[in-house]
């Protein structure tokens, strides 16, 4: 077994264990921490594939930005520990079998794919190739996505500013 394989196995074990913890831990903050561990160890997996750029982005975007917001909101709402419920009848008779089927399918597909896969090391941390794709071949969808996100942010702002019977604009003037 090579060193790389060993590193991968350790990272994979940590990722899976943390992912399971996200679900079974009862406190939202603990689940969030487990999810951060998932993100960071996934970045480690990217590193073993020599995709340094993707690894760094994975940490900056997911662990550094998105999960910070998660943790921030959980802290702000002061969410307490959750009660563990017995599974509903629906979950027991439909959910569990479906989950097992999905897991089996995934395991089969991944197992089948791994044997025929030859990994190609990404040159220069894959920055060049990625930016070529983003800013040359797919520049239109890329910009469209950013406009979509912008619209979503503006929409959230407008909704947050509105109160009963008062148009958003006038309310804003009152606040400032």
């Amino acid at each position: 077994m090579t060193l790389q394989m060993l590193v991968f196995l350790v990272l994979a074990a940590v990722t899976v264990a943390a992912a399971v913890n996200v679900v079974i831990l009862r406190h939202p903050i603990h689940s969030a921490i487990a999810l951060i561990v998932v993100m960071v160890s996934l970045a480690g997996v990217f590193l073993t594939l020599e995709a340094e750029f993707i690894a760094a982005l994975q940490i900056i975007v997911y662990a550094g930005a998105i999960m910070v917001l998660f943790v921030f909101v959980i802290m702000l709402l002061n969410a307490g520990e959750e009660e563990r419920t017995n599974m509903s009848r629906m979950a027991r008779y439909v959910g569990v079998p479906l989950a097992i089927v999905l897991l089996g399918e995934l395991a089969y597909q991944v197992g089948a794919a791994t044997f025929s896969m030859t990994a190609q090391p990404a040159a220069n941390g894959a920055i060049h190739g990625l930016s070529m794709l983003l800013f040359q071949d797919f520049v239109f969808p890329f910009e469209l996505t950013s406009i979509l996100i912008l619209i979503a942010i503006l929409g959230a702002l407008v909704l947050a500013q509105r109160r009963e019977g008062v148009p958003a604009k006038r309310e804003q003037q009152n606040v400032s």
């Binding site: 340094e52 940490i59 662990a63 550094g64 930005a65």
Partner: peptide, 11 residues
């Protein structure tokens, strides 16, 4: 980027 990744997790 790696340094920025580390500082962004520092929060």
């Amino acid at each position: 980027l790696a340094i920025f990744a580390i500082t962004s997790v520092g929060v």
